[in-house]
Design a protein around this nucleic acid. Structure first.
Lengths: 108, 108
DNA sequence: TAAGTAACTTACTTTTTTGTGCGTTCTTGA
DNA sequence: TCAAGAACGCACAAAAAAGTAAGTTACTTA
């Protein structure tokens, strides 16, 4: 284990931190393609500002791909990059960790 | 995949979010036991307040175990719970995801 | 001419998280 | 008598994240 493992894991988690990113990602898994307005509908509590901002960040980080169709009114589609799809196993591992909680009960 | 998968993964990530938690955890992996003052030394930039606060939160969440020795001056030791140790594979999965990044280069 | 549409910006406010510095406790050794 | 040591707690300040509401663009259709 190189000494950067901790730092790199930190970075990985930072890419996913925040109130909205995972929620957005879950709507894009399995190759789903969504328009901005689809995501707005699927995530009723998010503000337009946060949706746009987090999508841009996910795009910048290489997790989400953005396609603009030059139409009026505008049309923009979002999908995961391949690397974004590759997040699945890691999130599954986290989920199964969370699920295991009750099977470990600490001795007092 | 039950429909709570997204919500549960969210919760799991929230347990690890923030500037300090993973840093603290990395110093406790592999059964390492550390005193409060050890962690202070190992994490030079953290303030006492944040160290105490995050340790309490990790304890509350069942990830870290806290042992107080009734001595003067005080002695308090921290170690991972079994469930806390069980985080390793999930963090490894995240790390390997991060490492894979360059092997996926998106077609423009 | 005017309203409608999708996908955002921008300016501003509120909330949450993090940081700073000092105080507290109790006993021991100089 | 008094400073030292370990592990905090507390009040307050700064910074970061999130939320609110209104404005923008550039065509299309009524």
């Amino acid at each position: 284990m190189p000494s950067t493992a901790a730092a790199d894991t930190l970075k990985a988690i930072k890419l996913l931190e925040g109130r909205w990113k995972l929620i957005i990602l879950f709507h894009l898994f399995d190759g789903k393609v969504q328009r901005y307005s689809d995501l707005e509908r699927l995530i009723p509590d998010i503000s337009q500002k946060m949706l746009a901002q987090q999508l841009r960040r996910l795009e910048f980080d290489g997790i989400v791909h953005r396609t603009v169709y030059p139409e009026v009114p505008p049309k923009v589609e979002y999908r995961l990059t391949e690397w974004g799809q590759a997040l699945c196993p890691a999130l599954d591992a986290l989920l199964s960790w969370a699920d295991q909680k009750d099977s470990f009960e600490e001795p007092a």
